[in-house]
């Protein structure tokens, strides 16, 4: 089936098998390998991307279900400054500053879940952040600094991240 998805602002049209999962389409067909596969059973959230602005687990969505949609992956968050240098998204900066990662495997999914969370709850409490990230597992950090990063980002952007 022919599928057209706007990924990080660019249209991509491909012939896909209906059973192709969105995460594999992004990684293998489109070549965006920032989105990770952790569990492949809808549990860990490493594969989180946005469809039309909302976080989803791309291992549990068929590429054909995203036909005609806008998908944002971790590669789509940073912007390019006038001088051509990359500017990290405030959430990425906050993860760096607060040391919200160790091995980094969960990080793309965490950052995508966190940006979707702030879009829905611009001024979260710490408890909101913890429950808002319950679909994302991290085997390294113990979550403390991840939560701190999301709180810092919300404070830094006044909820506009």
């Amino acid at each position: 089936m022919r599928v057209r998805i706007k990924v990080n602002g660019t249209d991509h049209e491909h012939e896909v098998e209906p059973r192709t999962l969105l995460v594999h389409h992004l990684r293998e067909t489109i070549g965006l390998t920032g989105t990770n596969v952790g569990c492949d059973t809808s549990s860990c959230g490493a594969c989180t991307v946005h469809i039309d602005g909302e976080s989803v687990k791309s291992c549990t969505v068929l590429a054909v279900q995203a036909d005609g949609c806008e998908v944002t992956t971790i590669e789509g968050l940073a912007t390019i400054a006038a001088d051509g240098s990359p500017v990290l998204h405030p959430m990425q900066q906050a993860f760096m500053q607060c040391h919200g990662l160790q091995c980094g495997y969960c990080t793309p999914g965490m950052v995508m879940a966190a940006t979707s969370l702030l879009a829905e709850h611009p001024h979260p409490t710490e408890a909101d952040v913890r429950s808002g990230l319950e679909g994302n597992l991290c085997r390294c950090t113990g979550y403390h600094n991840i939560v701190a990063a999301v709180m810092a980002c919300a404070a830094a952007t006044g909820g506009a991240a």
Binding site: S42, G45, S55, V56, K57, T60, A113, N136
Partner: peptide
């Protein structure tokens, strides 16, 4: 129900 990602779909 589940988590935010599940509830979005």
């Amino acid at each position: 129900v589940g988590d935010p990602q599940v509830r979005h779909r």
